[in-house]
Computed example of a mutant assay.
Amino acid sequence: MKKQINLLAYAMICLAAIVIALLIRSAILEKYTSNHTIAVTGLGSVDFDSDLIVWSGTFSRIDKDLKKAYAEIEKDRFIILQYLISKGIKESSIVFQSIQINKEFDHQYDDTYNLRKKTFVGYNLSQSVTIESDQVDVVEEAGRSITELINQGIEFYSASPQYFYTKLAELKLQMIETATLDANKRARILAENSGNKIGKLKRATLGVFQIVGQNSGEDFSWGGTFNTFSRKKTAHITVKLEYLVD
């Protein structure tokens, strides 16, 4: 009886030793596997042409008679509107802002820069106009021909146009897919060259979008770059993938 008890105890000790060994082996394998990964970065980039343009300008008149100045700027407004429409721009795309009125003074100073005389010059009335349109070519041509207004005696100051892309959301999805496929391809090549295969995806990290002018040499920024002054642009995105190695 005592011998049977000893054999049973011995068997239990052996079984416990086997279980412990299996647990240790499993832990070692898990640690080994989790520490053997391949991390790669894929790039997605695409060139595109902006499909929305925003162009603005300002015109002004100055006169000591406020009513006369207002009448003159209203006349200029009508001429500018007709000019833009004649160039093919839709009237619904043209927005005139409210008129701004400021009093202008001529200041005269003495040799010690103390104000000697302040003379009223007139009322300076200014107004801005903004065109937001998908007629990119048409608006660009109107901007290049703006001297036609200046030749009519209108003081028109044109700002640089800004360019946007209305299908940016779809473009981003396309770029993410491209960058992901690129990263996956890189990971497979690295694994095969080392005699391994990639396993499950452990982690995926999306970079920031960078939109720059084509062939502009613009620098990327940590928070992302969004160029609005180039019609033709290039968008970039990176995707970092980390795979377990089988």
Rank of each mutant, 00 (worst) to 15 (best):
I62Y: 03
D63L: 05
L66Y: 15
S56P: 07
Y70T: 14
D47Q: 12
V46M: 11
L52V: 15
I73F: 07
L66E: 11
I62D: 04
K68Q: 11
D65W: 05
T58L: 08
T58Q: 13
A69F: 08
R61L: 01
L52M: 14
I80K: 04
V54P: 02
L81G: 02
Y70D: 14
K68E: 12
D47T: 10
G57F: 03
F48I: 09
S60G: 02
L52E: 10
D47G: 06
D47I: 07
D49Q: 12
F48S: 07
T58M: 12
Q82S: 13
L43E: 13
F59A: 01
E74T: 08
G57K: 02
D76Y: 10
I53C: 05
L43Q: 08
Y83V: 02
I79S: 02
W55L: 12
G44T: 11
I53R: 04
W55S: 01
L43T: 14
F48V: 10
I80P: 02
K68A: 07
I73K: 04
Y70F: 11
D76Q: 13
S56Y: 05
K67C: 00
G57R: 02
S50A: 15
L81D: 03
A71C: 00
K67V: 08
Y83R: 05
K64G: 15
I80D: 03
L43I: 15
V46Q: 14
S50P: 11
I79F: 06
I79V: 15
T58Y: 02
R77M: 09
I80V: 15
I73Q: 03
D65Y: 07
S60D: 11
S50V: 09
D65F: 05
E74R: 13
L43S: 08
D49T: 15
S60Q: 13
I80G: 03
G57Y: 05
S60H: 09
I80S: 06
S56N: 15
D65L: 03
Y83M: 04
S56K: 12
K67P: 00
S56G: 15
K67I: 10
K68D: 09
I62M: 14
Y70H: 12
I79L: 10
I53H: 08
V46Y: 07
I79A: 06
R61M: 04
R61T: 15
A71L: 09
Q82C: 04
L66P: 05
D49W: 00
D76I: 03
K75R: 12
A71V: 09
R77N: 12
D63T: 01
G57T: 07
Y70V: 01
I80C: 05
K64T: 14
G57Q: 01
D51C: 06
L52D: 04
D63A: 13
E72F: 01
I53Q: 05
V54D: 03
F78W: 03
W55E: 05
A69M: 11
Q82M: 08
G57I: 07
E74G: 09
D76M: 02
D51L: 08
V54C: 06
E72C: 00
E72N: 12
L43R: 08
V46P: 00
R77C: 01
Y70R: 14
I53F: 07
D63F: 01
D47C: 00
K67M: 06
D47F: 11
L52R: 13
I80H: 04
F48K: 09
L81I: 02
I73L: 13
T58P: 00
L52Q: 13
A69Q: 10
I53T: 10
Q82I: 00
I53V: 15
F59S: 03
F59R: 03
E72A: 14
D65P: 06
K68G: 00
S60T: 12
